[in-house]
Each structure stands twice: as structure tokens, then as C-alpha cells.
Computed example of a mutant assay.
Amino acid sequence: MFEEGQLYSPVTQHDDGSVEVHLSDNHPGRNDAHYLARRGEIAGAALAWTRGEPIPVIDYTDAEHEIWRTVSHELAPKHEKYAHSEYVVAKHALGLPTEHVPQLHEVTERLEPITGWTYIAAPGLVPLRDFYGDLGAKTFNSTQYLRHGSEPLYTPEPDIIHEVIGHGNQLASPRFARITEAAGKASLRVETDEAMKFIADVFWFSMEFGVMREHGEVKAYGAGILSSTGEMDEFGHMEHRALDLADMGTLNYDITHYQPILFCAESVDELEDVVGTFFDEVDDDLAAKLRAEAVERGLVEAPTA
């Protein structure tokens, strides 16, 4: 099941005002004092920010711009080869810079005229309901830090490359943007944690790790795949299942490995009909009904008392 806290390194603000980011033991930057300090500095800027104020501007270093440049150039030909045309067209419409890290206000200035979405700063983890509630208001909470320079093509956690190249380009598609907004609005209708997790899991297997057929080939449209060179090399070899809400909302998965099971839409129309309609209509009762169906079909074990 989806556990958002696993995705981001915890952030602590100490009594003296300093900010510490707690990287996992296997993080490439775990023993890099300079990187740790930089992560704390960037997280601190987001923590100090108040909504309604200008988004924090990060003075990115030459090394950070080089990471963005390296990843952008690696991703570009893979997008042309592996991404669904809905994403590719949106990416060209958004026209993100490839030679420097964009500020979040720059992303908003490009994205808002296309689909009405805006970006705001987050230090790392945003509580699940807050994150999705903002999606319902066409607002995306984004980190501003970059992955460690020793492994520019790998990150164990979402960074600005994932949030902007992955999701920003996706949100420049009016059709993908509407599905994402619907997921956010769905979170405001449900009361139980189980229903909220069900929504988040369907989102994971669609807008994060979704694939779709196009001209007889399986293409990617999920932000998690399209912001990762490794995922793009691997997703075509994974098991591709038809869209199945009961399965998507209950399937266990490990975020630290490539996704071995993906759900494949036949078209954008089918994605809207199945996933988009689910987000438009889901409430606590429907989520519970779909989970009961998953139990009945043997997709998941019945909860223990």
C-alpha cells in the first residue's frame, strides 16, 4: 500500500532555527556534509515560506545546474521514444529550460496559461490529505532540491527533477491535468484513511506509474517513469495488466525497486473513463466496495480483526 512518508527524507527544524534533513543510510549523499547542509538550507527556505508570499527563490549552484542539464539531456531522447504522445505534446507546449534549474515561479508562469496549475514550495513530505487537497485546487507541492551529484541519473526520493520534469510536463496536458485535479477533489470527499489510501494507490498506478497503448506499442505517461531513465528502460519488460480499480487500489508494491506490475490503458479515453470517472465519483462507500471486491477475488487478504 501507498506510504507517502517512505518517499521523502524527514525534515527537522531545531530550536536554534537550523534545519536538518535525515537521509536514509543508502542515500548517495548520506555522508556528504556539504550536501546535507545544502539540503537543510533549501528545506529551510520552504519551511520559512508563507502562502501568499512569493515562492522562495533558490540560488542554484553551477553543480546543481549541471545535474539538471545532464538529466534533461538524458531524458529527452527517451521521452521521444518511450513517452505517450499526450505527454510529448504537453512537454513541448510547456517548454521547460534544459540548461538550468527553473525556479518554481518560472514553472507556474509557463504552466498556468496552459492548464491553470501553479507550483508551490515544499520542504519534503507534505501530509497526504494536504497534498491531495492542493491538487484539487490545481496546486502542486514541489520540492526544490536536486539529487546527489555522484549519481545524477538516480534518486531514492522525489526531487525537483521528478516534480517538474515528471509532473510539470504531465500537467501541461489538459486531459492529464483534469484527472489529477479530480484525484485531489476526491480526497476532499472521503473521510476514512482506507479510502484516502485507495485513492492514492490508484493515483500511483496511473499518474505516477501509468502506461498506455499507442499504435500497438506500450508507452509511458506516468511521472514516476518519465522522470527516470532506469524506469523508462525497464517498464516495457514488466507485467502489464488492464485497468482494474480493485487491483490498482490494493496491490502491494515496493517503491525502492522498479515496478514489476503496471496497469495499461488502451487510450487516453479509457484512462478518463475508468480512472477519471473513479476520481470523480469515489466516496468512502465506493472505496470500501472496491476493496471488498479485491478481497473476494483473492487480490488481497481480508483485514484481520
Rank of each mutant, 00 (worst) to 15 (best):
A121Q: 13
A121E: 14
P123K: 08
L125R: 10
L125C: 15
P127L: 05
P127A: 06
R129E: 15
R129D: 13
R129T: 12
R129L: 09
D130S: 15
F131W: 10
Y132T: 12
Y132W: 14
G133F: 05
G136T: 02
K138N: 03
T139P: 00
T139Y: 01
F140P: 00
N141W: 01
N141A: 13
Y145M: 08
R147M: 04
R147P: 13
R147I: 07
G149T: 04
G149E: 15
S150V: 12
P152L: 12
P152D: 03
P152E: 03
L153A: 02
L153D: 10
P156T: 03
E157W: 08
P158F: 13
I160N: 10
H162C: 02
E163P: 03
E163S: 14
H167L: 09
A172V: 06
A172M: 05
S173E: 07
P174C: 12
R175H: 14
T180W: 02
A183S: 14
A183I: 06
G184L: 04
G184P: 02
G184C: 07
G184T: 08
K185M: 12
K185T: 05
S187E: 00
S187D: 09
R189T: 08
T192V: 06
D193P: 06
M196L: 10
K197R: 12
A200R: 01
V202S: 06
V202T: 01
W204M: 05
W204V: 01
M207P: 06
E208P: 09
F209T: 05
G210I: 06
V211K: 03
M212D: 02
R213Y: 15
R213I: 03
H215I: 04
H215Q: 11
V218P: 03
K219Q: 13
A220I: 05
G222C: 06
G224R: 07
G224F: 03
I225A: 10
L226D: 10
S227V: 08
S227W: 03
M232L: 11
D233T: 10
F235K: 04
H237A: 15
H240W: 05
H240A: 04
A242Y: 06
A242S: 14
A242W: 04
L243A: 00
D244Y: 03
D244M: 08
D244V: 06
A246N: 08
M248R: 07
G249L: 13
T250L: 13
T250C: 11
L251F: 08
Y253A: 01
I255G: 01
T256V: 09
Y258R: 12
Y258E: 05
F263H: 15
C264V: 07
